[in-house]
Nucleic acid binder design. Structure first.
Length: 469
RNA sequence: GGCGCCAUCGUCUAGAGGACUAGGACAGGUGGUUCUCAGCCAUCAGACCGGGGUUCGAAUCCCCGUGGCGCUACCA
């Protein structure tokens, strides 16, 4: 039987910041591609830049991936633990004549010095001289000798891209501190880890010819490539901090659901042929394919993300919604364990009114807080007339007498009052809403009365009556 | 500057030469449901970057422009 090739993809973040949306999408696509084909997905941390890497970011990236449900196979690889491997391969390239030591000083910040490398003649140093310098204290790097031939990249979504090698100069593969550069380490790792498909951002396209040359020089098998276009902010610039929320952590902490983020991200640069919008993880695993990946950069639309999250909140079980609500109450230190049943009723009543869990807090403050502030405009519109106050006095008495405080019974009681007074329902409902919630928008008034409870309701009505006198 | 990628409604996209009167989703408008708001339902408006080819026929293929983005480090 023919040996089946196992698909292996990887996600290779550098721990120099939180997991951002672009990285999360790259990870997601790689993960989907591997999982769909029962392949393997590997996590590799590219932490060769010790100055910028930090454990704080590493932990946060891992936490974010776990939150999203993107799981990886085997151990987590760290490039910082593999520096000897890179060194070994760099030496190999030296001995095969594909690389050479360079003793030139590092290029300065200034663009002007671009010519510098052309003046570098280290490649022509006689071997005796090289030996001598190698053993001296002069800092040295290893440069790859770029072959004079064009390089073709076959990208699975962009097809063939050709690069002329004369636009590429001999680049550093091993820095003077003995650590491999990105372009070198990535090739060694991907080859050694038998990665079959490299799915990454298209900011790496320009790097790819260098990597391809290294594959060839080291006689490694070239993997398949898929370059994903960038995620941009609303100003069409690459998404970054100044566009606001860009880290997965932000979404996690602000009441978004992982499945909603996954769903939204999946659609940012990929689609099904029928443009299906709501896709569960199972749907994605079934339907994901390279064919649906689009080449143009995509602007992250916070509005649509919010809508998507709302969709998932509405589909959520009430128990789960309540638990998440309670988590926020705990965070705000206003949780009362005796009120779980009440919290559940609140959550149920607001389920269709929120787009993030966090929105529950401001939307239910009139229930959670002892007292309320009445908005001036609302009061002016609904609590100003003498008649209204008289009506509220009647309402107060009816409510005070009510023994059954279910919303159904409250509705019956108040509808009776409305009939008795021969007024329109809204003449009671609107002022009552303002008196009880402080605003003109809330869930159904009878549910509000029920959830508030007799004590708070009477107190708030009394306050409004007093206020008018 | 050089090299590269990309180009359909405001946004995400469907579309792989005739099925396009260019479809869906978000956002927006209007109407309905209703005690308000939200939700839900219905409905409207809204795009093929420009110019040349190729072809009987182009959103789709080719070329040139233009625009956006990326890379051009001893960052990744």
């Amino acid at each position: 039987m023919e040996k089946k090739i196992v698909i292996r993809t990887r996600f290779a973040p550098s721990p120099t910041g939180y997991l951002h949306l672009g990285g999360a999408r790259t990870a997601l696509y790689s993960w989907l591609y591997a999982r769909k084909q029962h392949g393997e997905f590997i996590l590799r941390i590219e932490d060769t830049d010790a100055k910028r890497s930090s454990p704080k970011y590493l932990n946060s990236i891992i936490e974010s991936l776990e939150w999203l449900g993107i799981n990886w196979d085997g151990e987590v690889y760290f490039q910082s633990k593999r520096i000897e491997i890179y060194k070994e391969y760099a030496k190999k390239l030296i001995s095969s004549g594909r690389a050479y030591y360079c003793f030139c000083p590092a290029k300065g910040e200034e663009r002007k010095e671009e010519k510098e490398l052309e003046n570098c003649s280290c490649i022509n140093l006689p071997s005796s001289k090289t030996k001598e310098l190698e053993n001296s204290n002069i800092p040295k790097v290893i440069r790859f000798k770029v072959p004079k031939e064009s390089v073709k990249l076959y990208d699975l979504v962009r097809e063939e891209i050709t690069f002329q090698s004369d636009t590429i100069s001999d680049f550093v593969i091993l820095k003077s501190d003995g650590i491999a550069t990105y372009n070198f380490a990535v090739v060694i790792d991907d080859a050694l880890m038998k990665i079959t498909h490299i799915i990454r951002g298209d900011d790496h396209i320009s790097n790819t010819p260098r990597q391809l040359m290294l594959y060839k020089a080291l006689d490694f098998k070239i993997p398949k490539y898929v370059h994903l276009s960038m995620i941009l902010g609303s100003d069409r610039k690459r998404l970054s901090k100044r566009h606001g929320a860009t880290s997965v952590t932000y979404f996690k902490e602000n009441g978004y659901l992982p499945q909603a983020l996954i769903n939204y991200l999946s659609l940012l640069g990929w689609s099904t042929s029928d443009s299906q919008q709501i896709l569960s993880k199972e749907d994605l695993l079934n339907k994901f394919s390279l064919k649906g990946i689009s080449k143009n950069p995509a602007i992250f639309d916070y509005d649509k993300m919010l809508w998507m999250n709302g969709q998932y909140i509405r589909k959520m079980g009430i128990k789960e919604l309540t638990n998440r609500f309670i988590d926020y109450l705990k965070k705000e230190k206003i949780y009362l364990s005796s009120k779980d049943k009440w919290y559940q009723e609140i959550a149920a009543l607001h389920q269709s009114r929120i787009r993030t869990i966090r929105e529950l807090l401001p939307q239910t403050s009139y229930l959670l807080n002892k007292d309320i502030e009445i908005e001036e405009d609302a009061a002016n519109s609904y609590l100003n007339s003498k008649k209204t106050i008289e009506i509220l006095k009647e309402v107060r008495e009816f409510i005070a007498l009510a023994s059954d405080f279910s919303s159904n019974n409250l509705e019956e009681v108040l509808r009776n009052l409305i009939a008795k007074l021969k007024i329109e329902a809204k003449e009671i409902i609107h002022p009552l809403r303002v008196a009880l919630t402080g605003t003109t928008a809330s869930p159904g008034i009878f549910e509000v009365i029920h959830l508030l409870g007799k004590e708070k309701v009477l107190r708030r009505i009394d306050k409004v009556i007093q206020r008018s006198e």
